[in-house]
Design a protein around this nucleic acid. Structure first.
Lengths: 362, 362
DNA sequence: CTGTTAGCGCATTCAC
DNA sequence: GTGAATGCGCTAACAG
């Protein structure tokens, strides 16, 4: 049982192969009568162009490649998953396919990218999780392989390099908004629970908290430092660290965290200390945060995906354009603050346990 | 800057195109001297076969398609993510690519599969999350499209249909082992926290608990029913439900749960009731369980991925074989019990908060 | 507006 | 062992 080809359609519709091709690719150039006849034949045979042949002919694959991270660290692992989903969905709408690959190290990733490109399997790549001194962008630019990164080029001065297309979430602004929401509610000692610097993403997020605290309360460096806790991204470690904070001299009346992992630790510590009333805001809006009623800063991954494709393909295109063809080569997405009230969940609140739990608005 | 082709390699090595092709595909049939010369030319030009051309010629894509689930099934969402990673990794080792697609409904998924197949984009499909009266396998068999499902064909009598290749995790056996581990430790009233039937997966898992309780303690239906709690897969709901259990007449001395989501609810309820000592075992071994020190039944997703590929490609092959070519058309993977001690995490345990948290062995 | 010509890069016959 | 044809299915360029 062979799949029908242009030839079959042409024979059925009594036209030449090329007319069929025209009907599919440039229908405007075909006389309405024959157009209809050919389309009928296409439907009759349930014909679809063979993509391999089309790709070979057009010298492009209409496929973008993305690496699946090795082992996504803990609770925030779902972020890439959601991004992948948005990206696939929107790529499909634009007539592109998404091809997966894995690599344990940046070097290995480069090898994979080279293989994929050399095999003409992939037209462009989406890189995630950029970091300080990331070797990948430079190599890709040098190789003239189109790409876009989810994440800014950190540490280098080429934030505006048109060669390097990037989309990122404005973590600073998200944390700024989160902090303001606590200050607006009357908090005066909002603590920051973040990662030990230097981490590009973490430092950026912390600066949002700093800005808000400076602007609203006029705090100085020393005061900020006293409200700032640094701990690696681990629930147990965060629990310990925040417990110490809560046992300290200056009791915070709000906590903004660099991740939901830290926020979960903060929640556990606060609950244990009987201070479930201290509002906590995390980052990433993971399912865990939703399940536990923790407020969080949500990365709008659908917008990130849309931005990545727009940078790669142009506003409406369906094939990869050169990096110089766009006026802007980057996009900063504003995150959304998802506020949840602690009482949405009966955690550590025996009085509500027999009541009806509020549904999680997701 | 054109990519090198066989022609370029042939010219460089001073042989014909076909010899180059032979060097790549059947190196045994080439004289060692020319072999070396051609290989040197390949390396020199950094030549790689164009995959589109190869696919067109061979009439196969060496690509498998998998749908990215729309629903982020809460805390357990990462399961598909991990499976995808294993699958991609092992597929790459076998020279296959993994192509993603999305679909909101089974019907839409069928449309996507048809498009992908008709475009000769994909040789075979991996379906996840099979369910009762799943329309997809039947349609795929009818269309003669090779596929394998992660999940048994539920509800039908074709568990052994060689046309339907499937891999699944033996949930019953995992829960059985989990229950036994509690009984071995001296528990006598192990409760089951599961989903309201009928859910194929959930009922299967529950039967593991039932079997263990019957065998070891000789319990009857009524006694089992009194230890069985049914609640939808939601943390808040589970918290309520387990809180009621803990406030009831028969206090369980262990809890085995159908998911980590339920286990998290159980943990919260137990903690709130001051009964953190009651051991809890979840299912899926999610990052959350790891972070909170909850024991869990781990699906060995690397084995599932390996099984899926073995069923599709044969033990060592790199191209899809017909469904009748294998002696067995399915594989049941035994899950692993991951036991964690509650004290691994200082949750709700103020006395340990200033101590060193034990590292999580993952 | 339609049909003719000519490959895209590769692998599978066959001869030699 | 190696090399010469042939065509996979499609579309871009050019004639008509």
């Amino acid at each position: 049982m062979r799949l029908p080809t242009v030839e079959d359609v042409a024979r059925t519709a009594r036209v030449s192969r090329q007319t069929v091709s025209n009907v599919i690719n440039t229908p405007a150039r075909v006389k309405p009568a024959t157009l209809l006849r050919v389309q009928a034949a296409i439907r009759e045979l349930d014909y679809r162009p063979n993509q391999s042949a089309r790709r070979l002919r057009q010298q492009k694959s209409a496929t973008i490649g993305i690496r699946l991270d090795p082992q996504l660290n803990g609770i925030s692992g779902a972020v890439l998953d959601r991004f992948l989903h948005s990206l696939t969905e929107q790529a499909t709408e634009r007539g592109l396919r998404v091809l997966l690959f894995t690599a344990a190290t940046p070097t290995e990733e480069i090898d994979q990218i080279r293989a994929l490109r050399d095999g003409a399997d992939v037209d462009a790549f989406v890189l995630t999780a950029t970091f300080d001194h990331d070797p990948r962008p430079e190599w890709l630019i040098e190789q003239k392989i189109p790409f876009v990164t989810f994440g800014r080029p950190w540490g280098i001065d080429d934030l505006n390099d048109p060669q390097h297309r990037w989309v990122d979430v404005d973590g600073r602004r998200g944390v700024y908004a989160a902090t303001l929401s606590l200050l607006d509610a009357g908090a005066e000692r909002v603590a920051w629970i973040g990662w030990p610097p230097p981490t590009a993403t973490g430092d950026d997020r912390r600066s949002g908290w700093e800005d808000a605290m400076r602007e609203r309360l006029g705090l100085g460096d020393a005061e900020l430092a006293s409200l700032c806790t640094e701990v690696v991204d681990d629930v147990a470690e965060a629990t310990n660290a925040v417990a110490n904070v809560l046992a300290g001299a200056v009791l915070p009346d709000g906590m903004v965290c660099a991740s939901d992992t830290l926020a979960l630790g903060a929640l556990i510590a606060a609950s244990t200390a009987g201070r479930r009333d201290i509002p906590i805001i995390g980052f990433d809006d993971t399912p865990v945060a939703a399940a536990l009623g923790i407020s969080s800063v949500e990365q709008r991954l659908d917008q990130v995906a849309a931005g990545a494709l727009a940078l790669l393909l142009g506003p409406v295109g369906d094939s990869v354009v050169a990096s110089g063809a766009l006026d802007v080569a980057h996009r900063l997405i504003e995150p959304a603050l998802v506020l949840r009230r602690p009482q949405d969940l009966p955690m550590f609140n025996p009085s509500r346990i027999d009541g009806t739990a509020a549904a999680d608005k997701h």
